[in-house]
Computed example of a mutant assay.
Amino acid sequence: MKRLAFLFPLVLTLLTRPAAAQVYTASDPLAHTYSIVARDPQTGDLAVAVQSHWFSVGTSVSWAEAGVGAVATQSFTNKSFGPRGLALLKSGKSAQQALDELLRTDEGRDVRQVAIIDNQGRVATHTGSKCIDMAGHQQGAQFSVQANMMLTNTVPAAMAKAYEQNTKLPFAERVVAALEAAQAAGGDIRGRQSAALLVVRATPGAGVWEDRAIDLRVDDAAEPLKELARLLRLHRAYEHMNAGDLAVEKNDVPGAIREYEAAEKLFPQNLEMKYWHAISLANKQQVPQAIKLLGPIFRQDANWRTLTQRLPKVGLLTVSATELKQILAAK
């Protein structure tokens, strides 16, 4: 009875505490993390990339729209800052004006970390005074890097240096290099779990499906940045595959072979890339070379042999009946 009497005042205090004292809610993910927002000075493309010890960080932190800008919202994450920030940019506000408006109406501003870049490359960044150490950010020419709950205070500087020094890399690979530098500098004090990379076009395309140049997520992995880099290489390989398919449509067989070979070099273990390279060789009357490639593929998975039987009907394999029989007999 005495114990209950002791607890009652404490419970009453908790129940009557003003709601404004709560600066985050159960719906606000605790995405303590490091990220980068950037604009490619060559193309105008926009990117946001992130890694965290949090499941599926890309669904919370990273937001971007073609021709508009990119937003990274983290720490005690206010997800609404993503779509609202982009809407403010779209209305004509600068990155700083958009950020000021978001923070003005947010009672949890002290625990937020936010970075915004607009379509002109202007950046605005906020690290709340109550973000968990080590926390900070660094801005550069058309980019901003930001981090909180890091093992060391050197992460933002390491990210900025990596991004600035890797100008010879393609834009997406340059952004990932900044994330890798953050991890090398100690990264998240809790470890790592997920990562994401989003790149949107400088200007909107004919349809929204054309606006995202790269959209990759690693929701749960022991080494998410390694997996993100692998997916980016695979993305590049399939860019060559798509170019090869386009060359086939235009009856440019030599062009298709070049593109399929480039894809195969990036991922030599991928059966599909080897397969279409072989089919292109067959269509260029190089059947013996095609059979040499197709034999190991058929041995690993007989379904590719079945698919080959169906290609002449739709004009994707233009060989004689005798050559087709030779191809299907490949071992």
Rank of each mutant, 00 (worst) to 15 (best):
L12M: 14
L14V: 05
A19H: 09
L30G: 06
Q42F: 02
D45G: 06
L46Y: 06
A47I: 12
V50G: 10
V61P: 02
V68W: 00
G69N: 03
T73K: 13
Q74Y: 11
Q74S: 07
N78M: 07
S80N: 14
S80A: 14
F81Y: 15
P83C: 04
R84N: 11
G92V: 04
V111S: 09
A115C: 10
N119P: 00
H126G: 12
S129T: 15
K130A: 11
K130M: 12
C131A: 15
G140Q: 08
Q142V: 08
Q142W: 06
M149H: 04
T154W: 01
A158I: 02
K161G: 00
K161W: 00
Y163H: 06
A178V: 05
Q183R: 14
A185V: 01
A185R: 01
A185F: 01
G191C: 10
R192A: 09
L197Y: 11
V200W: 02
V200C: 01
A202K: 08
D211R: 05
R212G: 05
V218E: 03
E223I: 05
R233S: 08
R236G: 10
R236Y: 13
E239W: 11
V248A: 14
E249M: 15
V253S: 03
I257Y: 04
A263I: 08
E272A: 08
A278K: 09
I279A: 05
S280N: 11
Q285L: 07
I297K: 05
R299C: 07
W304I: 02
Q309R: 13
K313C: 01
G315K: 12
L324E: 08
L324T: 03
K325N: 05
L328D: 07
A330I: 00
